[in-house]
Amino acid sequence: MTNPTEPDHSAFEHNEEAGHPDAKGTLSQDQVVLIDEVVAGPDAPAFDFAVVDNKETSVYEGIVDDHEVAGLAYNVAGDSRLVLLAVSVVPEFRKQGIGTELIRRALDDVRAQGKTVTIVCPIVLTFIESNPMYADLIDVKHPGISKSRTRSS
């Protein structure tokens, strides 16, 4: 039995659009670290950084001192939807709130553009579950992954 105050790192359910035809995904250790940050990490990063939407590479980039230290990769789906693929943070910048703030600023930008999102990244899903004020950004027809509600023992 899991402790209800600890993040649940059980499998996520993926739809075929997410590229997981077996409908299951396993979290990597890097993803677990970032999910832990989203759930229990600092509310704001300890330092300032810029977020840039690099449309050429389809990545929201977290920039510190002219160096990319974090990224949220996405695909453009039509005129009004982004598919959020994966969050990454350079190891020495993890557990400092940069991943969480990157997701927040990217979702704020999506909202400002009047777009919706399809979530393929379990870290983004965990962020939205922890910050339900962003739930309205999830595309109703193409939501992406969801937390598995059943676990085998």
Rank of each mutant, 00 (worst) to 15 (best):
G25Q: 08
D136E: 13
T126K: 09
F49D: 02
I123E: 04
D109C: 05
F93V: 04
F93Q: 05
K24I: 11
M133T: 09
R111Y: 01
R111V: 03
V83D: 07
I123L: 08
A50M: 08
T100N: 00
S80G: 01
T126V: 10
T126C: 11
N75L: 14
F47E: 11
S146H: 14
A23M: 00
V76C: 00
L102K: 05
A106M: 02
T126F: 06
H142A: 12
V59W: 11
A77D: 04
Q113M: 10
A106T: 05
E68W: 09
I145F: 00
R104K: 07
G99L: 02
L85K: 15
F127N: 01
G62T: 07
F49H: 04
R105L: 07
A77R: 12
R81L: 04
I128F: 05
Y60G: 13
S28N: 02
P122M: 07
L84K: 00
V120F: 08
L107R: 02
G25S: 12
P45A: 09
R105A: 05
S58L: 14
A112G: 06
Y74A: 07
P143R: 14
A50K: 07
L85D: 14
N54L: 09
A106N: 02
G99V: 13
P122C: 15
V140H: 02
N54F: 09
V69I: 11
V89M: 07
V90P: 01
I98Q: 10
I63R: 10
A44N: 03
K95P: 07
K55R: 14
K95L: 09
T26P: 06
T26E: 14
A135R: 08
V51G: 03
S88W: 07
D36A: 01
V52P: 03
P143Y: 08
